[in-house]
């Protein structure tokens, strides 16, 4: 048996499995991101609101999700959550790729609260005088937040948000625990079928490294082209 056989990575059944896994990992990342970012922005605005009950809800939400590991979230959404659904909904869930749906829910919430914290520090970095100036022009609170505060806060938040995106990308690997057939799942599957752990894990490592470094490079580029301009 050869030490490292790149052939199995380039074509054939194992190659197909691994590529399918990679594709699903990317899909999980993108879909969860699409839900996580707006959720994060919403929670961040709630947490910085002048209305105390909103702040409390936001804080509770963040702490409840942040202090529980992603794996436990996945277990909950996959094993416990369906029990809470009415029968019809549960049937619908089970008929339509429940592993992926539950993974997206868990990942979106988990990434969402972490992004909320990054956006919140971005918001806090904008001096209060900015909102005051906007309100003095006659803009309502929601408009002021939307047009003046958030754009500046988001720009300041981009580097930590991109870092959080890398975390999200890495976190998709945990979805394997509920049977989502992403990259780690497939790599383990190849290992079990062929004992070629070296090739399978090398593929996975290169895939994760490449995407992570691409996202981090994007962060660097962004900071160069759009530096945070303070008042």
């Amino acid at each position: 048996m050869q030490l490292f056989d790149p052939a199995i990575l380039q074509s054939g059944q194992y190659h197909d499995w691994l590529v399918q896994g990679l594709v699903l990992s990317i899909q999980l990342t993108v879909i969860s991101f699409v839900f996580a970012l707006p959720l994060g922005a919403l929670v961040a605005v709630m947490r910085t609101s002048t209305f105390a009950p909103l702040r409390a809800i936001g804080a509770t939400f963040v702490e409840a999700i942040r202090n529980v590991p992603l794996l436990a979230h996945l277990l909950f959404w996959y094993f416990a959550f369906p029990e809470l659904l009415p029968d019809a909904a549960r049937e619908l869930l089970y008929a339509n790729n429940p592993e992926v749906i539950c993974a997206v829910i868990a990942l979106s919430l988990y990434a969402g609260v972490h992004m909320a914290e990054d956006i919140r520090s971005g918001i806090r970095a904008i001096p209060a005088t900015q909102l005051e100036a906007a309100r003095s022009l006659g803009l309502g609170r929601i408009a002021a937040v939307r047009l003046v505060l958030l754009p500046q806060a988001l720009r300041a938040s981009v580097p930590p948000l991109l870092s959080q995106t890398v975390n999200l990308w890495k976190d998709t690997s945990v979805a394997t625990v509920i049977g989502a057939a992403e990259l780690m799942y497939q790599a383990a599957r190849v290992e079990t079928a062929s004992f070629r752990s070296l090739e399978a894990f090398t593929f996975a490592t290169l895939a994760y490294l490449t995407v992570s470094l691409l996202i981090s490079a994007a962060a660097h580029l962004f900071q160069r082209c759009y530096p945070v301009r303070t008042a």
């Binding site: 890398v166 890495k170 976190d171 690997s173 945990v174 394997t176 780690m184 790599a187 383990a188 290992e191 752990s197 894990f201 996975a204 490592t205 994760y208 490294l209 992570s212 470094l213 981090s216």
Partner: peptide, 10 residues
């Protein structure tokens, strides 16, 4: 920091 902990564990 670019690879998941799970991968290193595997």
């Amino acid at each position: 920091r670019a690879v998941p902990l799970l991968l290193v564990l595997f």
